[in-house]
Design a protein around this nucleic acid. Sequence first.
DNA 1: GCAAAAGTGTTCCCCCTACACCCATGA
DNA 2: TCATGGGTGTAGGGGGAACACTTTTGC
Lengths: 228, 228
Amino acid sequence: MAINRGGFTVTVGLVVLTIRDGRLSALLVKRAEPPYEGRWALPGGTVRPGEDLPDAAGRELAGQAGGDEHATGHLEQLASYGTPGRDPRGPAVTVAYLALLPDPPATHRDTDAAAWHPVSTVDGEALAFDHSRILADGVERARAKLEYSSLGAAFCPPEFTIAQLREVYEAVWGTALDPRNFHRKVTSTANFVVPTGRWTAGERGRPAQLYRRGPATLLHPPMLRPGA
Amino acid sequence: MAINRGGFTVTVGLVVLTIRDGRLSALLVKRAEPPYEGRWALPGGTVRPGEDLPDAAGRELAGQAGGDEHATGHLEQLASYGTPGRDPRGPAVTVAYLALLPDPPATHRDTDAAAWHPVSTVDGEALAFDHSRILADGVERARAKLEYSSLGAAFCPPEFTIAQLREVYEAVWGTALDPRNFHRKVTSTANFVVPTGRWTAGERGRPAQLYRRGPATLLHPPMLRPGA
DNA sequence: GCAAAAGTGTTCCCCCTACACCCATGA
DNA sequence: TCATGGGTGTAGGGGGAACACTTTTGC
């Protein structure tokens, strides 16, 4: 009944970001076969027959980065790429998705085939296919969305301190933020974070209250980047 | 040399918006053949072999709405849609683009096969395929982008008054804006609009200065929607 | 005590809002 | 002269930036 009219391979590509050692980092996989054998590339794979695009992205994400991304992380469509010749094997459209994950301990460790790379150290031409451009687009999307959405908390574990959330913003934007103003801003924005009543202990300095993600998705007013 | 590994038809779909009679309106075409024969749908078509996605979108736009969209309008990728079953003919991914055009006189008149519909009158289930959802996504993107970009001017002819630009914002957002504050805001934002030195004549009231689009793309600070 | 980190208060300034007011034209 | 729309001035308020200050822990 379904007639194959198509000439395109459709794949999903994943820009998976997290904060490791205070640096915004992307998950990359090393290609095991041509084309671009041995080069780093974005995780991803072909969309299966009868599979919806978000499902394919979620399946690839679960396979690459563990299964709990729906608990605290975030997954959204980024953009599509179809420039002729981008895949030497033939016409191919990649629908890219952006995933934001907390780092420890859900995120798997580096292996020979998959590793986290600080985005500032990924050379603009180093990745396979047109993945350098896709990665750059994903990073820029993440930077922009922190301003007007509550997605910064997607990088945090289920319970986190305001300082942890601030370190997310500082890592993604690459700027220092005033801890006092950041604290007031976050806690005074309705439904951004909700206090749990629990507190950190055993660390330097005064204990900090733990918070969870609130139900808000859009921030009014937004968090503004100092630079621009 | 290029091996066809594909099972997908890839098409581009266009959400083409303009302001007609003070209302945000979308260009729709009436399908001449099954599936959904006789139903209104978004303009679009299949991506040709060797053609890049933006080129395909621009070609379809030129074919449907005249050729000068690059002069004053705007074209950007919106999102991709690939839910199984969305096209009864088989697996199909549509990469949707959003186009913003000035209305008179570049925009063609309505015909039996293509007509402008105020978006507020397009029923949520009336369009072919999943085009109602794509249209809704495009309208929401346009509403959001007016806030923090200079794209409002893409709806205006090459030379326009501040009042014309204000009517664009009012039509897209569906709210009334204070003409005095809007004027000050627009003219005081660097590089948003640049005065031509020419003035309107022959109309009611005091003549208004004519402006062109400025080189700015992002607005600092943004224009804020009154409602939220 | 000292360093370090959490959290509060305060001041200044910019921008947004609202609205009074003046200007320039057509009828 | 009146109506209509273009454009400027000004007062009030909310939020952000900067930073002094207090609180509570580890060492």
